[in-house]
């Protein structure tokens, strides 16, 4: 009887410790809080691994990615409901030059762009302080997704 109890206790410890170690934000990028608008008539596919991470207000997360040249991309970021604005910047990994800052576009959550030549980029994401939010959490989930498509060639005029 006592062996059974001990074994059950140990099994529970394993299960709990595994639960604690698992990511609390697993699959957040697939939730309803994350939605990337795809322009009508375009076929965009998933590019690289969409990521979810646990973060805090003010905490910066840098996603290192290589974007192949000759493609259109949509970059989308998201966070748990209410945690807006999300500040993101696209930075050249080599020179650290800021290529895009969504602060200049009213902190829009997604960005459509074309990359001419293959290049390594850093995408820096940060949830900014929002004084209007009623329930404040220490930690919250943030998600990032990149979609790609072949470049849409302009339709020749008739």
């Amino acid at each position: 009887m006592s062996i059974k109890r001990t074994i059950t206790g140990l099994a529970l410890i394993f299960i709990i410790s595994n639960q604690i170690s698992s990511q609390p934000c697993k699959g957040f990028h697939e939730s309803k809080d994350c939605f990337v608008y795809i322009p009508e008539g375009r076929d965009f596919k998933q590019y690289s691994q969409a990521k979810s991470a646990l973060t805090a207000v003010g905490q910066k997360t840098t996603y290192k990615v290589v974007l192949f040249g000759g493609k259109d991309y949509i970059l989308g970021v998201c966070a748990e409901s209410g945690y807006r604005p999300i500040h993101f910047r696209i930075i050249d990994s080599q020179t650290k030059k800021v290529m895009y800052d969504n602060k200049d576009y009213d902190y829009i959550d997604s960005f459509n762009f074309t990359v001419e030549k293959t290049q390594p980029l850093d995408i820096e994401v940060q949830i900014l302080e929002n004084k209007k939010i009623s329930v404040k959490k220490d930690k919250m989930c943030v998600g990032i997704e990149i979609l790609w498509s072949t470049i849409l060639k302009p339709v020749p005029k008739k």
Binding site: S48, K51, T61, T62, Y63, K64
Partner: peptide
């Protein structure tokens, strides 16, 4: 204050 994550390709 800066976490780094790699978005690796398949």
């Amino acid at each position: 204050n800066n976490k780094v994550t790699y978005m690796l390709l398949s």
